[in-house]
């Protein structure tokens, strides 16, 4: 039983990391209808910025965490102002391609600045654990879950109560109608990219914390987040979190139980598992668990 609980806890922690990455995708998709392939690049950049704040400039860790989030938001805004704002109204396909171009650039800029070797983040969490009731929980995992909870609460409050949040919801429903109401689409986009950058930087930081290290392959987590965002529904923040937790737990569990009970599925099945879950869910619910059905017009 303790074994099972331990696995559940680490599945939830993994899922929380997926959720953070997925939230970034969702924010941009809601506002602009674009799947941002550079999201993984933003995560890597966030991890290295955190390294810079904490190790190079010696900022205390928790302050560095806040600064990293802000810097991430800055990166998002910068990308929007320099490149993406020229593309409002272009087909989403073109903008997706553009984000791929951005990813290629970030992939090269990061090792040019910080080198290719993995670096220690030096977070105070390290490998410390707490053990309530015999279940080992990493402190860094607790923080990750906490950050996800705060971000999700922030999302809820922002979209519900703030003027900008409501404006963003309106643009997501109908861009032209929203602009006709005097909602500044440019500002909406800039805020969306900033939020995505902020969330991605936090995701990168949590991935590098807890002994993982600041390293280039953090961006690969974005690939695992694809099934997560689809599972929850591309435009649903709550769905991103639910999907993340579901995939995280399922992946860890299948890592343990598939080799013991279902060897016929072949070696390395846990890696494929999220995609299998995704395809099954999509066939039953074509817009994910919580996604909005699109109305098809003649």
């Amino acid at each position: 039983m303790t074994d099972f609980l331990n696995l559940l806890v680490s599945g939830v922690a993994l899922g929380a990391q997926y959720s953070l990455v997925a939230l970034g995708f969702v924010v941009i998709y809601r506002a602009t209808g674009v799947i941002n392939f550079a999201q993984g690049g933003f995560c890597v950049l966030g991890a290295y910025l955190a390294y810079n704040f904490h190790n190079t400039w010696g900022v205390p860790f928790y302050l560095a965490l806040v600064l990293t989030a802000l810097a991430g938001a800055g990166v998002g805004a910068l990308v929007d102002v320099t490149v993406l704002r020229r593309f409002v109204g272009q087909p989403p396909f073109v903008v997706i391609m553009l984000t791929i171009g951005l990813l290629i650039l970030i992939e090269q800029i990061v090792p040019s600045v910080w080198g290719a070797d993995p670096l220690p983040l030096g977070d105070p969490w390290g490998l410390r654990t707490v053990s309530p009731g015999g279940v080992d929980i990493k402190v860094s995992d607790l923080w990750t879950v906490g950050i996800v909870a705060v971000v999700l609460a922030g999302f809820f409050a922002f979209f519900r109560f703030s003027r900008m949040g409501v404006a963003m919801r309106a643009t997501a429903v109908d861009l032209e109608a929203a602009m006709a109401q005097g909602i500044p689409a440019h500002r909406v986009y800039r805020v969306s990219w900033s939020i995505a950058g902020l969330v991605a930087a936090l995701a990168g930081l949590t991935l590098a914390a807890g002994g993982g290290g600041v390293r280039l392959d953090i961006e690969l987590v974005a690939l695992t987040a694809f099934p997560v965002i689809i599972l929850g529904g591309l435009d649903s923040p709550g769905g991103a979190v639910a999907g993340g937790l579901l995939i995280g737990v399922a992946q860890v569990m299948s890592g343990k139980y598939q080799p013991e009970h279902a060897t016929w599925l072949g070696q390395g099945f846990p890696i494929v598992m999220p995609y299998v879950v995704m395809i099954i869910v999509l066939l039953v619910r074509p817009y994910g668990l919580f996604g909005q059905r699109k109305v098809r017009r003649i």
Binding site: G268, Y275, L282
Partner: peptide
């Protein structure tokens, strides 16, 4: 037929699933 059920961006990501399942098949 998947494309008749699942549309647009959802289809794009569904098709990424095919790559990973393909990888699994090719290796095994």
């Amino acid at each position: 037929p998947f494309a008749l059920r699942v549309r647009g961006d959802y289809l794009a990501i569904l098709s990424i699933g095919l790559l990973y399942i393909g990888q699994h098949i090719f290796v095994n």
